[in-house]
């Protein structure tokens, strides 16, 4: 079955414009760089966070405490607010 014009046009363009070999080198160099950056972040991020907290005067245990607050702070419920309003009247 003959291909449609869109597909034939794509084939022609592919033949006409071949990616230069140095483009592959550029792309792969960037991939290596991104990979190294990712590994560096993975390795040093915990230490960096720890250092920042210590600079702020907290210990590492503090971080855990901050996230394990027993009672979350909520705005007063509607009924409490209306009770307050009535009281003030």
């Amino acid at each position: 079955m003959p291909q449609n014009s869109f597909k034939r046009l794509a084939e022609e363009k592919e033949k006409e414009y071949v990616p230069p070999p140095e483009l592959e080198q550029r792309v792969m160099a960037q991939i290596y760089l991104l990979q190294i950056m990712g590994k560096a972040v993975e390795l040093y991020m915990p230490q960096l966070v720890q250092m920042l907290f210590q600079m702020m005067g907290h210990s590492v245990h503090h971080i855990g405490e901050m996230f394990s607050q027993k009672e979350p702070i909520h705005p007063p419920s509607r009924s409490k607010r209306t009770a307050k309003k009535n009281k003030s009247k």
Binding site: A10, K13, V18
Partner: peptide
């Protein structure tokens, strides 16, 4: 990265010609 390199080789020509067009 050799796996990623192979993906590049499979698709680079198509992606490049689309970008040119």
């Amino acid at each position: 990265t050799s796996y990623f390199n192979l993906l590049y080789r499979r698709y680079a020509a198509k992606v490049y010609s689309k970008c040119i067009s």
